[in-house]
């Protein structure tokens, strides 16, 4: 879990970064890009604080 959380958090950030490029290349519409960016953002804000809390609890 300690390795999974940072990896998943990083993946959500990278996915968020990828969405505008997918829109630029015509894979996603503008609305889909904005929704996907919002979902990736929410995922980051769930995963990153969890990771932070777990890291602080570690001795």
């Amino acid at each position: 879990m300690t390795r999974l959380l940072p990896a998943a958090g990083l993946a959500s950030l990278l996915a968020g970064l990828a969405t505008p490029f997918l829109h630029w290349h015509g894979v996603l519409s503008e609305n889909q890009f904005k929704q996907a960016l919002l979902v990736c953002s929410l995922a980051w804000f769930v995963l990153a604080p969890l990771w932070l809390v777990r890291r602080q609890r570690q001795p």
């Binding site: 950030l13 968020g16 970064l17 969405t19 505008p20 490029f21 829109h23 630029w24 503008e30 890009f33 904005k34 960016l37 953002s41």
Partner: peptide, 11 residues
């Protein structure tokens, strides 16, 4: 990420 996404998204 939001700065980059916003700029790339309007290209």
């Amino acid at each position: 990420v939001i700065f980059v996404a916003g700029a790339v998204g309007v290209m």
